[in-house]
Computed example of a mutant assay.
Amino acid sequence: MNNGLLEHIEAFVAIAESGSVTAASIAMGTTQATLSRQLAALEKHLGCRLLHRSTRAISLTQEGETYLQHALRMLELKRASESALQERGRLRGRLRIACSNGFGRKLLIPALRDWQKEHPQLSMELVLSDQLSQLIEDRVDVAFRMASLKDSNLIARPIGISRRIVVASPDYIRRDGRIKAPEDLPGHQCLIFTGTERPGVWDFKGPNGKVSVRVQGRLALSTVDALQDAVLAGLGVAVMPAWFWTRELLDGQVVQLLPDYRLADHTIHAVTAARQNAASKVRLFVDFVEERLKGFLG
């Protein structure tokens, strides 16, 4: 049985068990359109309708009730066969992973020792770049992204929340004064990260509601790593992920500003093309990263 047909069967089972394409898409971390296409392809392959669809509910046809029992057994056999190959050290081959420089250096690489100890016969390649990788063109198995996703052909699984904070060095604060409210920011040197959709606009939610501030500064940077270096050099104020600064905040190398004001969180996604999503080594690695992020991000 080819992988495409198995994906169609998984889609059918998810819809049948949840009774809703919407609920199934949330559970599987994919889009409603993708599941609908997979279901239609399965029905075309079988030559019969599996589900009754209405605006209010979805129910199984007689053929669907019969096929569901066989589909459940097929998926159970698939899981059992994969489990037999996923014993310690049995994952083989190569994983090509794309992520930003900061995510790779700060979150991913420190966790790889435990992963490689568990799977010594699996090699890995990290494609570290702050530019979004094209999964298919770059032959990437999985990418970790915090940017908005526009390609509906990709499967995005949320695995963590990245909280953002405002930071500056103690030297900068001593030299240019403290910042007590977002309205103080236009009078400061703010470091502009050009990799966002709205560079120079910082949106806060504070005690009195939402506050949007247009900031300015003499320095704009295209990578978060360079942004970190600029903050440590005392060149200005920046908005950055909190996980970038765990050690530096504890050591007093940087200071968190405006703690009573919250910036919008970013969701961390594990993104795959449909053909890689079913691969056991990809799923296991994403599971591993998600578990590590729980402890690191809090």
Results as ranks from 00 to 15, higher is better:
Ala270Cys: 08
Phe244Asn: 07
Val215Ile: 15
Ile268Gly: 07
Asp114Ser: 09
Ala242Glu: 11
Gly209Gln: 05
Arg113Val: 09
Ile173Leu: 15
Asp225Met: 07
Asn277His: 13
Asp225Tyr: 09
Val231Arg: 13
Val224Leu: 15
Arg90Thr: 09
Val237Gly: 11
Thr196Gly: 15
Glu43Trp: 10
Met124Pro: 02
Phe244Asp: 05
Gln216Ala: 11
Pro186Glu: 08
Leu219Ile: 12
Leu77Pro: 03
Gly298Glu: 12
Asn277Met: 02
Ser59Cys: 03
Pro186Phe: 09
Ile109Trp: 08
Leu91Gly: 08
Ile173Phe: 02
Glu87Lys: 15
Lys205Gly: 01
Leu154Ser: 06
Lys205Val: 08
Ser54His: 07
Cys99Tyr: 06
Val166His: 07
Leu250Thr: 13
Val289Asn: 05
Glu125Met: 14
Ser18Phe: 03
Asn2Pro: 14
Tyr67Ile: 04
Ala274His: 02
Gln131Asn: 06
Phe285Ile: 01
Phe204Gln: 03
Ser222Gly: 04
Val254Trp: 11
Arg139Gln: 15
Gln189Met: 08
Pro241Trp: 09
Ala111Gln: 08
Cys99Phe: 10
Thr223Gln: 12
Arg218His: 06
Ser129Ala: 13
His45Val: 00
Ala270Thr: 01
Val127Arg: 13
Gly200Ile: 10
Thr61Cys: 04
Pro199Ile: 10
Val13Gly: 08
Arg218Phe: 01
Ile159Met: 08
Pro207Gln: 10
Ala279Thr: 00
Gln116Phe: 00
Arg113Thr: 15
Ala279Ile: 01
Asp251Trp: 07
Ala98His: 04
Leu219Gln: 07
Leu135Ala: 01
Thr246Pro: 02
Gly64Tyr: 10
Leu35Ala: 04
Ala156Leu: 00
Thr61Asp: 10
Gly298Ile: 02
Ala147Asp: 15
Gln121Thr: 14
Arg73Ile: 12
Asp265Ile: 12
Leu35Cys: 00
Ala23Val: 02
His119Val: 01
Ala84Ile: 03
Gln86Arg: 15
Leu122Tyr: 09
Gln121Leu: 14
Ser100Ala: 10
Ser162Ile: 04
Gln86Leu: 07
Asn277Gly: 08
Glu63His: 14
Arg53Leu: 11
Ala181Asn: 05
Val211Ile: 06
Ala233Tyr: 03
Asp225Phe: 06
Leu112Asp: 01
Ile192Ala: 05
Asp130Asn: 15
Arg292Leu: 03
Gly29Ile: 06
Trp202Glu: 08
Asp114Tyr: 00
His119Tyr: 03
Ser81Met: 12
Gly64Phe: 04
Ala220Thr: 11
Ala181His: 09
Ser20Leu: 02
Phe244His: 12
Ala238Thr: 00
Leu95Trp: 13
Ile161Glu: 14
Gln32Phe: 00
Trp245Phe: 14
Glu125Phe: 03
His269Cys: 07
Arg247Ile: 01
Ala27Asp: 06
Ile165Asp: 03
Gly93Tyr: 01
Arg145Met: 13
Pro170Ile: 14
Ser162Glu: 10
Leu154Trp: 02
His45Lys: 11
His52Phe: 13
Lys106Gly: 03
Arg49Trp: 05
Lys281Phe: 00
Thr66Glu: 09
Lys117Asp: 05
Arg218Ile: 04
Ile161Trp: 02
Asn101His: 14
Glu63Cys: 06
Leu126Lys: 11
Thr194Ser: 09
Pro158Tyr: 02
Asn101Thr: 13
Phe103Gly: 02
Ile26Trp: 08
Asp265Cys: 13
His188Arg: 14
Thr272Met: 12
His269Asn: 12
Ala84Val: 04
Thr246Met: 11
